[in-house]
Design a protein around this nucleic acid. Structure first.
Lengths: 220, 220
DNA sequence: AAAGTCTTAGCACGGTCGTGCTATAAGATG
DNA sequence: CATCTTATAGCACGACCGTGCTAAGACTTT
C-alpha cells in the first residue's frame, strides 16, 4: 500500500493538509522576501494564500513557528538554486566558480521576488534576540563555512586564507543583491562578475598584500 | 536681538519644542537602527523618549514624516562620522584611504547601536514603494557617487573604472556591517581592512583582469 | 452509506497600531 | 502680572495584530 494510497505524505501528514501547508509556505517565502519576515502578518499571509486566518494558524502553532518554517523553506530553495548547481561541477576551482555563477544567476532570475531572502532576514533580525535570529545566524554561518570550504579546495596561493577569500566573495554577493534591489542597476551583475574574478585571481596568485589603513586591531 | 534671546532656534522653531524634537530624533535613530524603521512605532518611541504618544505625534504630522526626519538625522551623523574625517585628508589616494578608515572606525565604534542605519533601511524598504524608499535610494546613490568620485581621484591605473572600484569597496563595507552585526565576528574588521587594501592595490596597478564566469550579460 | 478523523472557517478576546480632537501646562511678550 | 502663543498630555476612534475556542466541512476507512 503506497503512502499516496493511504493518504499519508512522506513526513506523516495527511494529503490535503500537507498541500495547503506547502502552498502557505510558498506564499510566505514570497511575501517574506518582499516585505520582511516581521511584516509577514498572519492576516495578510492568509489573504495572500487564500485561506482563513485561523485555518492558516492551525498549521503553525505561533507566528514564530511560521517564521521558522518559512526560513527552512527558503533555505531549501537556496540550496537547490545555488549549492546544488555548484556541486554539479568537479571539486576544485571549477566548483567554486560554478557556485558563484549559480549565485549570480540566482540574483539575475529573481528567485526570491524581493531579493535574497536571507540577506533581508539577516539585517532584520540581527538586533532581535530569539530563535528566529538564532536560526538565521546558523544558516548564514553554514553558508560562509561552505564558501570557505570551496575556497580552501580552489588552489589558493601559499599563505592565503580561504576565510579571507570567502569574506570577499560573500561581500560581492551581498552588494550585488543590495544594489540590484535598491538601485535596480542593470550594470551590477557585470561588475559583480568582474569583482568575483578579481578576488579569485588575487587569492590564487598572491600579489595583493598592501600596507594597512590606520585602524586599530582591537575589536570592541 | 539674538535668536537665542528671542526664543527662536535657527530654523524658526521655538526653544523648548526644538529641544524635544532633537531628543526624539536621537531616540528614533537609535531605535530605528536597532529594530528597523518600520518597527519604530509611535507608542514605543514615545515611551523610549519619555514623552506621550500624542505629544510626540505633534512634532511630525505622520509616521512617514517621522521616518523621513529620522533618515535625515542619521544622514547627518554618517556625514559627520565618515565623510568629514575623509575630507580632512588631502585629495587623492590619501582621501580615499582616510574615508575607508573612517568608515571602518564608524563600524568599530558602533556609531549606530544596531549597525549601519542605512544598510538596514535599504533592505527594509527596497520592496516598499513610497517617499521613504525614494529618499533612502537618493542617499545611497549619493554615497556611491561619492565613493566613485574619491576613486576617480585616487590615481587608478589606465582603463580602470572608478565605479567598479567603488562597487567593490562598498561591498566590503556592507559585508563588514553584516558580519559584525549578525555573527559578531571580531576578526571581521581585520579582514575588511585587508580586503580594502587589496581592492585598492588591484585598481591602482591593473593586473586583475581575469576571464569571466559563464553568466549571461543581459540583465532582466 | 456510516463512522470517524483530519482540515478549515467563524467568531471573540485583549492589545497595539496610526491618527485625530480637546484641554492644560509651559514659556514668551507686553 | 496679564495675555497670548506654543508645546504637551488625555482620551477616543477604527483597524489590525496574534491567538484561542468551537463548529462545520472534506476526506478516509469501514
Amino acid at each position: 500500500m503506497s503512502e499516496i494510497a493511504s493518504g499519508v505524505s512522506p513526513d506523516g501528514r495527511r494529503l490535503r493538509g500537507e498541500r495547503t501547508h506547502q502552498e502557505i509556505l510558498a506564499s510566505a517565502v514570497e511575501l517574506g522576501s518582499r516585505e520582511g519576515l516581521e511584516a509577514l502578518t498572519i492576516g495578510r499571509l492568509a489573504a495572500h494564500a487564500g485561506v482563513s486566518k485561523s485555518g492558516l494558524f492551525a498549521h503553525f502553532g505561533s507566528k514564530q513557528e511560521l517564521q521558522l518554517a518559512t526560513i527552512e523553506a527558503a533555505r531549501a530553495i537556496f540550496r537547490a538554486e545555488v549549492i546544488e548547481p555548484g556541486l554539479a561541477a568537479p571539486e576544485g576551482p571549477a566548483r567554486l566558480r560554478a557556485t558563484l555563477a549559480a549565485w549570480l544567476d540566482y540574483f539575475r532570475r529573481d528567485v526570491f521576488p524581493g531579493g535574497c531572502f536571507f540577506q533581508a532576514a539577516s539585517l532584520e533580525f540581527d538586533g532581535r534576540p530569539g530563535p528566529v535570529r538564532d536560526r538565521v545566524v546558523e544558516v548564514m554561518e553554514q553558508w560562509l563555512e561552505w564558501l570557505t570550504e570551496l575556497a580552501r579546495r580552489a588552489g589558493l596561493a601559499e599563505g592565503e586564507d580561504p576565510a579571507q577569500l570567502a569574506f570577499e566573495l560573500n561581500a560581492i554577493g551581498l552588494a550585488t543583491n543590495w544594489q540590484r534591489q535598491l538601485l535596480g542597476d542593470s550594470a551590477t551583475l557585470v561588475r559583480s562578475e568582474k569583482a568575483f574574478e578579481r578576488a579569485l585571481a588575487n587569492a590564487r596568485s598572491a600579489h595583493g598584500r598592501g600596507n594597512p589603513l590606520n585602524v586599530k586591531e582591537a575589536d570592541r
